[in-house]
């Protein structure tokens, strides 16, 4: 019984997140702030998209 609720709850949350994530990436960036850069080279969290190491990748396949 509880397993069912847990799975259902997971699916709902996952769905909402994926939906929002997708809609967010679809809404166009307002004009004039295309090349916004956060100067956070100090932080070494390579997983966050702002990290310089990502730019090379993003520029070539967009």
């Amino acid at each position: 019984m509880q397993v069912f609720y847990a799975i259902l709850f997971g699916v709902v949350l996952g769905g909402i997140y994926a939906g929002l994530y997708y809609m967010n990436h679809k809404t166009p960036v307002p004009k004039g702030c295309e090349n916004l850069k956060a100067d956070c080279e100090g932080c070494k969290v390579t997983s966050c998209e702002m990290h310089p190491s990502h730019n090379i990748k993003e520029t070539n396949h967009d």
Binding site: V3, G10, G14
Partner: peptide
């Protein structure tokens, strides 16, 4: 979008199940 949503939903479902 459907593929993305399903994938994430499945991952969360497995997570919920394993936790229980």
């Amino acid at each position: 979008i459907i593929y993305l949503t399903c994938f994430l939903a499945i991952v969360c479902a497995i997570a919920g199940g394993a936790l229980t």
